Amino acid sequence: MDAIVGPMEPAEARLANPRPWDADADDELICRTVREETHDVRTFVFSAKSPRRFAHQPGQFLTFAFEIGGETINRCYTIASAPTTPDTVAITVKRVPGGPVSNWLHDTMKPGSVVRAMGPMGEFTCFRHPAEKYLFLSGGSGVTPMMAMARTFHDLGEARDVAFVHSARTPADIVFRDELELMARHNPDFRFSAICKTDGPAERWPGVRGRLSRPALKLLVPDLRDREVFVCGPAPYMAAVESMLVELGFDMARRHEESFDFDALSAQDTEAAVVAEAELDSRPTVRTYKVEFAKTKRVIECGEDTTVLAAARRAGVRLPSSCSKGLCGTCKSKLVSGTVDMSHGGGIRQREIDAGMALLCCSKPTSDLVVDR
């Protein structure tokens, strides 16, 4: 007698003969679940709308195009999940007061929601710097790329000596605390240490208190000079870590860092403006073009040898950006009119270029421009 075949279970259907995710052709993701990590941090788990499998290196990121208030806002988020779970990708996002994207995600993203994303991309990954011993240093939501790396080694059963030191405000703000402590119990070569500034509302912190410091670093990781170091967190945190490592005599060629701190863009804008002004004063006369930003009605001048982003910063026009290398796609904008010479690093698809999009961080004008910003 023939077996009775019923409808395929939806979860089974998602695993049935999936094709690889094609970064050039695929861009739609559907939210599958939302997980509470702490009182202000959530993880959003996505899969492709049609069965796809993702191939990425732990620590890489996706660039999302969110439709918020009738405007497309591009943001980079590190993939917090490991490549050992290839049917989904997850991002972990902290709600930032006044943050247009983080608040929108926390308030509106739910299972079934559809978003667009491009990637994966990025060079901040332990796969590109193989070592026997690692030190992962993270502050706040900078924990996500480190978590992807730690999860990967744990899932694969890799015998790697990993020291993971995370800085948080209170014990209640330690993202992935339970999972990291479980991994440490499972693997004696994996050591997790948290540093908290203060006690939590329901827990007095028994460990190292305050901020990360040289004495704390030497106490928690006495052999740090033997390790490959990865650092991610807010800009002040990473600057402090850099100073500590230099003072401790660490080989800085073995330090790797990543940040998508959009709240720090104003400082970056100021620095870029100073550099651009110096370049402007020292260069020979070049042809300049007018660049009009359609939404703000601002008009600036941009030399043919200057990127639109650099000229905008010099003029005090603040535009979203992150990598400034044509890689992340954060500064992607529609050219209403005009032409540019663009040399990008993969942060834009050919079909987007054909539709008139450009990355302002690596686009130099070849005519007057009107930008839909």
Rank of each mutant, 00 (worst) to 15 (best):
Ala163Gln: 08
Arg298Cys: 12
Glu179Ala: 15
Lys94Asn: 02
Val299Ile: 15
Gly347Asp: 11
Glu158Phe: 07
Leu219Asp: 14
Phe262Leu: 14
Leu29Pro: 04
His344Tyr: 10
His39Cys: 04
Asp372Asn: 02
Asp199Met: 11
Val275Cys: 04
Val96Glu: 15
Asp368His: 03
Asp2Pro: 15
Pro100Ser: 08
His166Tyr: 13
Asp223Ile: 01
Arg19Ile: 10
Phe46Cys: 02
Thr92His: 03
Lys49Tyr: 08
Ile174Asp: 05
Thr63Leu: 09
Trp104His: 07
Val229Ala: 09
Tyr237Glu: 05
Ala159Tyr: 03
Asp2Met: 11
Ala312Ser: 13
Ser47Asn: 05
Gly346Asn: 01
Ser333Thr: 13
Ala48Gly: 15
Arg318Leu: 15
Val231Leu: 14
Glu132His: 07
His39Lys: 08
Glu203Cys: 08
Asn187Leu: 10
Ile79Gln: 12
Val101Trp: 01
Ala267Cys: 05
Ile300Tyr: 02
Gly338Asp: 09
Ala82Gln: 09
Leu360Gly: 03
Pro111Asp: 10
Gly142His: 05
Phe190Gln: 03
Phe250Gly: 02
Arg351Tyr: 11
Asp107Trp: 06
Arg225Asn: 13
Tyr134His: 06
Arg227Ala: 05
Thr92Lys: 00
Ala194Val: 04
Ser243Ala: 15
Phe61His: 12
Gly99Asn: 03
Arg32Trp: 01
Cys126Gly: 14
Arg19Trp: 13
Arg351Trp: 11
Ser282Ile: 04
Asn103Phe: 00
Pro83Ser: 12
Arg128Ser: 11
Ala272Ile: 07
Ser333Met: 13
Asp261Phe: 01
Ala25Gln: 15
Gly338Ser: 05
Phe262Glu: 14
Val96Phe: 12
Ile300Cys: 09
Gln350Lys: 14
Asp173Ile: 09
Val41Lys: 02
Leu105Pro: 01
Leu217Ala: 07
Arg318Phe: 06
Asp368Ser: 01
Ile68Thr: 02
Leu245Ile: 06
His129Lys: 07
Ala272His: 13
Gly200His: 10
Pro215Ser: 13
Gly142Glu: 09
Ala90Glu: 12
Pro100Val: 03
Ser266Asn: 10
Phe164Cys: 04
Glu181Ile: 04
Ala13Val: 00
Arg52Glu: 01
Thr108Lys: 03
Thr330Asn: 02
Pro86Gly: 02
Ala25Val: 13
Met252Val: 07
Gly139Ala: 15
Pro201Gln: 12
Gly233Met: 06
Ala55Pro: 00
Tyr289Ala: 02
Asp27Leu: 10
